[in-house]
Simulated scan of single mutants.
Amino acid sequence: MFKLLLVAALVPAMTLAAVNFSPCPNGAPTPTSLTVNDCSGDVCQLLAGGRVDALASGIVSPADSATATAYVVVRLGGLDVGFEMPPELEDACAIGIQGGCPLTSGTAFNYALNDDSLDVPARGVAVEIEVGLTGDGGSALGCLRFNAVIN
């Protein structure tokens, strides 16, 4: 009985941990769920200089790919604010894609982005963050956008 109550109490908490996101205009696959730190809902509150732990689960690869390169674009009012992805996080096969590469068309995978120190020039305002993966020949392996305020 206690286990049932514990599970019943945790299910709403797990549901609240999801961050709302939208697809990218390039038509790349989106995940089935996104978690970012302890955010939930429409706008994620992030701390400049703080750690970012994000997990995009259930992305279905549209193509076979031996490589995967991660990118992040931060926009304010539709304009790129010049965020630079740490070079050590760009190789998503080495760091990020759980299980590594190669990716197989039609197979689901998870991508984790773990940045020890978020450094974005736009602070205290709502921004749109785009996270994407490109594969062999520039193929779009996955992409999503979510809203955040970085304080």
Rank of each mutant, 00 (worst) to 15 (best):
M14G: 11
A70F: 02
G78I: 00
L141Q: 10
I97Y: 06
A17K: 11
L55C: 02
G41V: 01
V19I: 13
G132P: 08
G132E: 01
S117D: 08
M14W: 06
T32V: 13
A92R: 05
L4G: 13
L16D: 06
L141S: 08
G132T: 11
R51A: 07
A92Y: 03
V60R: 10
A18V: 09
G82P: 14
G106I: 00
P121H: 11
F109N: 00
E130F: 13
S117A: 15
A112H: 12
D42I: 04
G58C: 02
A94D: 10
S40W: 13
I129K: 02
G138V: 04
A70L: 07
N37T: 03
G137I: 02
A28L: 06
G50R: 06
V52Y: 05
G27F: 12
E84V: 01
A54L: 14
A68L: 01
T134R: 10
T32P: 02
D119E: 03
D136M: 07
L47M: 03
G82E: 01
A63C: 03
G132W: 15
C24Q: 11
P121C: 03
I129S: 08
T69A: 12
V72C: 01
P121D: 07
T35C: 03
S22T: 14
T67N: 08
D119G: 00
K3Y: 12
